[in-house]
C-alpha cells in the first residue's frame, strides 16, 4: 500500500492504495466517481479519458499513484443536470449521444481541445475525436455538437460580462 494525495474535481483526497491500482479504478471505485467509464483498459477506446493537470489522459493507462499531487478532473466536474456545460448542452441539442457510454470520455477529450482550438474546422474536430471510439452515433452528430459548442462558447466569451 502506498499513500496517495491528489485533488479530484477540486476536492483534496488522501488514500492509501495498492501501487498497481489503475487511476480509472481508483476514480470509479475508491472515489465513487462513476462517470468515468471503462471500455477497453488498453488505451484505445478513450471512454476513460479524464483531465490530469488540465490535459486529457486515459485513466486506464495510468496508475493511481502516478497522479500523486496532480489535479484530476472528471466529467462530474463539468455541468450539473440542470446547468449543463455548453459542450454538454451542444451534445444534447445535436443528438451527439445514444447509449452515452462513450460520452464522458468524449467530453473530457474535447474540453482541452476547445480550449486550445476555439474555432476548429471539421477535419480538425474529426482528428480530435479519432482517439475516442463510439459504436452508436457514427460520429456525425458529435462533430456537429463540437462545432456548435465552439460557436456558442466563442459568442459567450465575446459577450460583455460573460462568465469565464
Amino acid at each position: 500500500m502506498q499513500t496517495l494525495s491528489l485533488t479530484v474535481n477540486g476536492r483534496r483526497i488522501e488514500r492509501s492504495v495498492e501501487p498497481r491500482l489503475l487511476l480509472s479504478d481508483f476514480l470509479r471505485h475508491d472515489v465513487e466517481l462513476t462517470g468515468t467509464h471503462v471500455g477497453c483498459e488498453h488505451g484505445v477506446c478513450g471512454a476513460c479519458t479524464v483531465l490530469v493537470d488540465g490535459e486529457a489522459v486515459r485513466s486506464c493507462l495510468m496508475f493511481a499513484v502516478q497522479a500523486e499531487a496532480a489535479r484530476v478532473d472528471t466529467v462530474e466536474s463539468l455541468g450539473s443536470e440542470h446547468a449543463l456545460h455548453p459542450l454538454q448542452e451542444a451534445f444534447r441539442d445535436a443528438h451527439a449521444l445514444q447509449c452515452g457510454f462513450c460520452t464522458p470520455g468524449m467530453l473530457m477529450t474535447l474540453v482541452p481541445f476547445l480550449r486550445d482550438h476555439p474555432s476548429p474546422g471539421e477535419l480538425e474536430i474529426r482528428h480530435a475525436l479519432s482517439g475516442n471510439l463510439c459504436r452508436c452515433t457514427g460520429y456525425a452528430n458529435i462533430v456537429k455538437a463540437v462545432a456548435l459548442a465552439a460557436e456558442r462558447m466563442r459568442e459567450a466569451g465575446a459577450a460583455p460580462g460573460a462568465a469565464e
Binding site: 470509479r28 466517481l33 462513476t34 462517470g35 468515468t36 467509464h37 471503462v38 472528471t74 466529467v75 462530474e76 463539468l78 455541468g79 450539473s80 443536470e81 440542470h82 449543463l84 454538454q88 451534445f91 444534447r92 441539442d93 443528438h95 449521444l97 452515452g100 457510454f101 460520452t103 464522458p104 467530453l107
Partner: peptide
C-alpha cells in the same frame, strides 16, 4: 424532441451496471 435521458448521461450520473 430532445432526449429526456441526456442530462443524466452527459453529467456522468446515469447508472450503468458497473456503477
Amino acid at each position: 424532441v430532445k432526449r429526456n435521458e441526456d442530462a443524466r448521461l452527459l453529467t456522468g450520473r446515469a447508472q450503468f451496471v458497473d456503477d
